[in-house]
Structures are given as C-alpha cells and as structure tokens.
C-alpha cells in the first residue's frame, strides 16, 4: 500500500514539471520583451527590472533560462507584485483562506446533497425524481456559473433585498455576529458553488449506484428477502461510494474554477477575485503564481482521490 502511494507520487512529479513548463512557455508567449512576463505589464522600478533580468538569466540561451526558471520556482522565488505591494506568494496566500472558505464547505454540502438525491432517485430508475435529477444535471451543465451569480444578485439582493450584494463580511460586525454575518454573505455565492458541485457529483453517484444495484450479488440479496433498505445501506451504498469519493477529489479543479468566477461576481476576496483583477491590471507574476498553485492543488487532490479510492476498493490493483 505504501509503495502504491509512493508510486503515485512519483507519477505526479512529471505532471507538476509539465505544469511548470507550461508556465514557462506562457512567459514566452507575451509579445515583446520577455521581462514583461516576469515583472508585469505596468510601471515598475527599473532597479527591480534589472534584478529580475539577472535572476532569470534572460541573456542566456533558452534552455539555460528554462532551468533557471525551474530552479527559482522551487526555491520559492515567485517575484514581487507591485500592484499589490507584496511578494506574489504572500498576496496569494493571504486570500487562499477566503477561497477555501467558499470552496470546501460547498464541495462537502454539494456531495452530501448529491448522494442523498441520487439515492432517492434510483429507487425508481426512470421515474419522476430520477428524470428530474438527470434533467437538472443537463440543465446546470449548460449554464455559465457567473451568470447565475449575476441573476441571483439581481433577484435576491437587489430586487428582494434578502442578501448582501457583494463581499464576504461587514467590517462593522463584532463578536458572535461575525459568524452570522459571514453566513449571510456566504449564502448566495456558497449555494451556487454548492449546486454546481452537487451536479458534478450527482452525475457520477447516480450512475455508480445504478450499476452496483444491477450487479448479481444485489439481486441475490434481494431475492433472499433482505429488507430493501438494508440492501441499500449495507451493500449498494458502500460499493457505489468508491467512485463518488474519487470524483469529489477529481472535481476539485472544477470547483476551484467555479469559485473563481463566483468570487469575481460577488466581490468575494479570494484567489479568484485576485486572479481576475490581476488579469485586468496585467500583473503577470501573480497570474502565474495562481496558475501554478491551482494546478498543483488539482494534481494533489487527484492523487489523494486515487489513494483513498484504492484503499476503499480492494479490487483496484495497486499496480495500476
């Protein structure tokens, strides 16, 4: 088992290296002086520009520059963001917590609801609840998430005045009110991200449960006369959960992207909101930093999913 984890970690390494390589290639795509990609496309002190030029060896041949780029990143040198007046990593990490506050509860909430809905739906495959669920999934797949955010703001915040229009919290709230205030602000953006997460997971949960319920051993159990509920909770659910747990990890990347867009629409001060502001201000170092962080997180969550699902399902070979 441990060797499986180690092997999986090893296969992740080339992927992370590829990500860094992609990032490097991107710095080369910027038209004009490559230093712009490393510094940002806005006014910056010339001494800093010189220092960066040296640090990244821009006068060297390209393969040397690639190696230097890799080296700098692994040493933690992501550059400085003059737009935000902080080192890039600091800027990003400052806001990471806020994004996680949005994403993680949504992912959890979405998963729970997804499993519940799927369980209820497959009692009668093709029945009303089941068709409703599949239609919902199809529908949500067709909607741009940021638009939903906008519509919710218009309907619930502006027109009905039930929820705040923007932001994560009210500066003026104190004490226990802080939590309530936070929840009040979380309600709209969180429910949207949760719903989209729910849909992604429900799709897999539903198919998985149906497949398991059709397996021979389930038919045997039911034929033996076992209580239907018992069959479900003891036999169907545990087996069906394996791909579901896996997919929670695999959809983490999607969840992050969803939250980025929702953050922008709601002014939620997280990484996503930072990303889109940096796009506008052309703060390239921050953009690269966010990309590297996000991609690495996705790789790690995939890894975690693989490890957990291999633990849960003894049939999955360790030598995959």
């Amino acid at each position: 088992m441990r060797s499986f984890i180690i092997r999986r970690l090893i296969t992740s390494v080339p992927v992370i290296l590829a990500i860094v390589l992609v990032s490097f290639v991107l710095t080369r795509l910027v038209p004009g002086d490559p230093i712009v990609a490393l510094v940002g496309d806005y006014p910056v002190p010339p001494e800093y520009v010189e220092e960066r030029r040296q640090a990244f060896g821009l006068d060297q041949p390209i393969y040397v520059q690639t190696l230097i780029y890799f080296k700098n990143l692994f040493l933690g040198d992501f550059g400085y963001s003059f737009v935000n007046r902080l080192p890039v990593m600091d800027v990003i990490l400052q806001r990471a917590a806020n994004t996680l506050l949005l994403v993680v509860p949504s992912q959890i909430l979405g998963s729970i609801i997804a499993v519940l809905l799927a369980s209820m739906a497959i009692r009668r495959p093709g029945g009303r609840l089941d068709t409703g669920l599949t239609s919902l999934i199809l529908f949500v797949d067709s909607i741009p998430i940021f638009w939903v955010g906008q519509v919710f703001i218009i309907v619930f915040a502006v027109q009905l005045g039930l929820f705040p229009v923007q932001g994560m919290f009210n500066i003026r709230s104190t004490g226990s009110n802080v939590i309530l205030d936070f929840l009040w602000h979380w309600a709209l953006p969180g429910s949207i991200v949760s719903t989209f997460a729910m849909v992604a997971i429900a799709r897999v949960a539903r198919v998985s449960m149906i497949e398991v319920s059709r397996l021979d051993f389930i038919t045997t159990a039911t034929a033996k006369g076992l209580n239907r509920r018992r069959v479900f909770f003891r036999h169907i659910l545990p087996n069906a959960m394996v791909p579901v747990i896996a997919v929670i990890g695999y959809t983490f990347g999607q969840a992050l992207t969803s939250s980025f867009m929702i953050e922008a629409v709601f002014g939620w001060p997280g990484i996503g909101e930072l990303f889109l502001r940096s796009v506008a201000s052309r703060d390239y170092p921050v953009l690269q930093g966010i990309f590297l962080l996000t991609a690495t997180l996705v790789v790690l969550s995939n890894l975690l999913s693989d490890v957990i699902s291999s633990q849960m399902d003894p049939r999955i070979e360790y030598g995959r």
């Binding site: 080339p14 992927v15 590829a18 990500i19 992609v22 991107l26 710095t27 795509l29 910027v30 038209p31 990609a37 990347g253 999607q254 992050l256 992207t257 980025f260 867009m261 990303f275 889109l276 796009v279 052309r282 390239y284 953009l287 690269q288 966010i290 990309f291 996000t294 991609a295 996705v298 790789v299 995939n302």
Partner: peptide, 24 residues
C-alpha cells in the same frame, strides 16, 4: 496518455484566461 492526463488536470478556465491574458 501522459499528455492526456496532464491536460485533463489543468484547470481549463484558469489556463485559458492566462494564455489569452499573456499572449493576446
């Protein structure tokens, strides 16, 4: 397969936004 996996891992919108922001 490795390349496929690598591309699958990339957060699509983030990468697309990044490319367009930097390359035009």
């Amino acid at each position: 397969s490795r390349i496929t996996e690598t591309f699958q891992v990339m957060p699509t919108f983030v990468l697309a936004a990044l490319v367009v922001a930097m390359a035009g």
